[in-house]
């Protein structure tokens, strides 16, 4: 297939790879941040208890 016909698919491939990977990274980072926060508050609670 020549450039004129093929380019939407080629661009689609590159965009979908980047989109999926970026979404996965963002989701992981958000979850990590939330977990870290919970971890911090929990360890404080444990310290207070002694």
């Amino acid at each position: 297939m020549e450039f004129q016909e093929a380019w939407p698919y080629v661009v689609g491939v590159y965009m979908s790879i980047w989109a999926v990977l970026l979404i996965y990274v963002v989701v992981l980072q958000k979850k990590l941040a939330a977990v870290k926060r919970e971890l911090a508050s929990l360890s404080k609670a444990v310290e207070r208890k002694g």
């Binding site: 971890l39 444990v46 208890k49």
Partner: peptide, 26 residues
């Protein structure tokens, strides 16, 4: 790098479970 992030998440979750148990028992 994705794998390491995912692993960190799993380990942090395990730590939380551990601390929660600690709180309940202590």
């Amino acid at each position: 790098s994705l794998y390491i992030m995912r692993l960190d998440l799993l380990r942090a979750r395990e730590d939380i479970e551990y601390l929660k148990e600690e709180l309940e028992v202590g």
